[in-house]
Amino acid sequence: MAVRVQAEGFDPGAELSGFACGRTDVGAVVSFTGVVRDTDGGLDRMEIEHYPGMTERAIAAMVETATARWDLADCLVIHRHGAMMPGEQIMMVATAAPHRVAAFEAAEFLMDYLKSRAPFWKKEFGTDGSGWVESKDEDEDALSRWE
């Protein structure tokens, strides 16, 4: 299990190649990569603020919940903060399990919780100025299916 909160970019392919590598008890690996999206063609960059200390604790707690709930062999969470350009990777989740259902569900669970329970705040800077990305009700609603 590994959690990394970092400003630097990362290579999702390289991360995935090394993930759960050489383990013979793993039958399924699932990964998700979040990318900075330029919705209307006017985005210059995104800046992500976070709460150092709480961020790591909150993600570690999510990973702990996921490993208690699903039969996971390994789990990786990488989340960036600071400035990033459209097309750059923001974050990545990977899960490895004996069976695919556990790997898929745990990855979705982690994604849903990272979205609205990890202390990150996105701000977009574009040709029309800047603004904080607002949370969506559907992101909050997504958590209820895991209760």
Binding site: G34, Y51, M54, H79, I90, M91, M111, L114, K115, S116, R117, A118, P119, F120, W121, K122, W132, V133, E134, S135, E140
Partner: peptide
């Protein structure tokens, strides 16, 4: 104590 808007990670 920390105050902040709803989080927008992921």
């Amino acid at each position: 104590v920390a105050f902040f808007p709803p989080m927008t990670g992921g």
